[in-house]
Design a protein around this nucleic acid. Sequence first.
DNA 1: TCACATTTAATTGTTCGCAATTGAATGTGC
DNA 2: GCACATTCAATTGCGAACAATTAAATGTGA
Lengths: 153, 153
Amino acid sequence: MPRKPSAADAPLRLDNQICFAVYSAAHAFNRVYKPLLDRLGLTYPQYLVMLVLWERDDVPVKDIGEKLFLDSGTLTPLLKRLEAAHLVKRTRSSEDERQVLIALTPQGHALKDKARSVPQSILAASDCSVSELVAMKDEIVALRDRLNAVIGE
Amino acid sequence: MPRKPSAADAPLRLDNQICFAVYSAAHAFNRVYKPLLDRLGLTYPQYLVMLVLWERDDVPVKDIGEKLFLDSGTLTPLLKRLEAAHLVKRTRSSEDERQVLIALTPQGHALKDKARSVPQSILAASDCSVSELVAMKDEIVALRDRLNAVIGE
DNA sequence: TCACATTTAATTGTTCGCAATTGAATGTGC
DNA sequence: GCACATTCAATTGCGAACAATTAAATGTGA
């Protein structure tokens, strides 16, 4: 027998879940990015790694992982693919042989110029003012940091 | 030679990307959910499918996909795992043999009661008022829908 | 009716994402 | 100096996520 919607079920309703909003928005972003990044020969996570490296080059895997909240199980194969694409070089640090330093190749540096049009296209797809987006971003980052604080206890 | 931060690079800076905020928040949610869902024997995407089915049972794969923005390449193996866990049953529709209908088993129905504590735990981890979360959720959903609108053109 | 397009799941192959483990390098306390 | 713990990247195994293709069922137009 069909049950009428119960108030007790409200917390379990899909449309009431902020996590699903975030989850589905992440996928929507990914789908908007895909055609843009295809032209650069990058996936979205690879693009994030490149953003890190364009800010600061020659960093250990661990640093990239801390900035992107990813571990070596994700980054090691991803970085090997970037190396196979001649965008980065992986070399063991001579000071600390445990570390692997990731450095951009000339092609990796050059790709930055081709990437400059990407944020503009995303902004257009968002159909939203910059100030609104910045405000949303700050709220989402604050929420993320509160969630991450709970994990680390 | 180290370059000083250039204003022209601001759009490419990781911390300025709303997409990264959303992406990393989704992962943070997933990490908070993991221990809660482990007790139910579900992954987060499986939990989303169960949320859909707890609202309405006996639906074709396509309907689940439309609600969750997922395709059969993701859902078919996921639903087979839920079937292997005895939470759902997959049967071809007799009216339209192309469709596979997904129905909850008694265990699948029963799991709903065990899941009721999950949203409360997430709310606590968010460390945020319900009204703030609802406002954020609505903004994120609106953004997601604008992004999805761009894709479908 | 019959050729044709459309719809629906399933399948294949590639790339993430993470838990758990491994192994080498480094740091430490005695 | 030496046992011990810690750090770091790599590896393995599993579960998404999606593009592209396949195959079967259904719908449509002439």
